[in-house]
């Protein structure tokens, strides 16, 4: 009896870490955009899910898995970069991260959500509000009793570990990373050092785009479906995780993303029936709401 429980716990743990990797990547991308570019990019998770839609279109026309995942990845980067110029006028006007950028990003998300929910259906691209993918890399890598670690989950975890390692290498050992850190600490001092403002912004959006593109690929593997509703929940959760950890705190956000994934995974499995998922979301929001109300700087401290 205990063996089964242990297996279930292990399965939820692995599932949680896999989902948590996605949360971690997205929170990091968000924090990066916030500290380097001063942008509250609420539409960022929507860009990620929208990339999944584009990938789905490719899949529908070619059936090629590799091409599909590649599309998701590239679309994530490309669309992020497309949104960059929209934020420039606001960033020029004020120091730090103006809340106007959050409002502007809701405009972007309204467009993306409408494309996914409405326009694509009208144009006959998609049939409904949810698009489905085939199970990718769903075979088990390691089996233990009734549960298993799938190839997909392994890819996600390993992929996240590698990207995080690369990201921190970037931030602490390369000129680009140093310029990110410099701009995030003191924008004027960075300008005096001659650090090119525009190039640094574009680079930051590209890195965030890469993280988003990877998340898009992982979401296709993990969820095998995409919808605008997923992006609604993803957005509020990722922002909430960032607040919980402390906005602008890159390592903090990463760790909290992972924990949140695990926490959510266990929560959903222990709550009964269909309302489990709904309450899973809600309890997560309550947890985060409590942080906002009682510990607004986040548990690791804010960097903005």
């Amino acid at each position: 009896m205990e063996n089964v429980t242990l297996q279930v716990i292990l399965a939820q743990l692995i599932n949680g870490i896999a989902i948590g990797s996605i949360y971690g990547l997205l929170t990091t991308g968000l924090n990066l955009l916030l500290v380097v570019c001063g942008v509250w990019h609420y539409a960022y998770p929507y860009v990620v899910v929208f990339s999944m839609y584009l990938a789905w279109l490719v899949h529908r026309n070619t059936g090629n898995i590799a091409l599909t995942l590649l599309t998701a990845f590239i679309a994530g980067i490309a669309i992020s970069l497309i949104t960059e110029p929209l934020f420039r006028p606001l960033s020029k006007k004020s120091e730090g991260a103006p809340i106007g950028t959050f409002i502007l990003s809701t405009g972007i998300l309204v467009i993306l959500a409408d494309l996914m929910n409405n326009v694509f259906i009208r144009l006959g691209f998609t049939a409904g509000s949810v698009v489905g993918f085939p199970q990718i890399a769903g075979n088990s890598l390691i089996q233990f009793g009734l549960s298993s670690l799938t190839y997909g989950q392994a890819i996600m975890v390993i992929g996240t570990v590698i990207s995080v390692a690369l990201l921190f290498y970037l931030l602490y050992r390369t000129k680009l990373g140093k310029s990110f850190r410099a701009v995030s600490q003191d924008r004027v001092a960075a300008q005096l050092l001659g650090i090119p403002t525009l190039k640094t912004r574009l680079n930051a959006f590209t890195v965030a785009g890469v993280l988003g593109g990877m998340s898009s690929v992982f979401l296709i593997i993990a969820l095998a479906q995409a919808s605008a509703t997923i992006s609604d929940y993803l957005a509020i959760k990722v922002f909430a995780i960032a607040l919980f950890a402390g906005v602008g705190n890159l390592p903090g956000g990463l760790i909290c993303g992972l924990f949140f994934g695990v926490f959510e995974s266990f929560l959903v499995s222990f709550l009964p029936g269909e309302s489990g998922a709904v309450w899973g979301n809600a309890i997560a929001f309550i947890l985060i709401l409590a942080t906002v109300l009682f510990r607004p700087r986040g548990i690791f401290g804010s960097r903005v």
Partner: peptide
Amino acid sequence: GFARVSGFACGIGTIALLFIAQA
């Protein structure tokens, strides 16, 4: 709680309230 925090945190917090209310 909300009156003490930054404008942005207040926004996210009240948006979270909406999702909670929905649930």
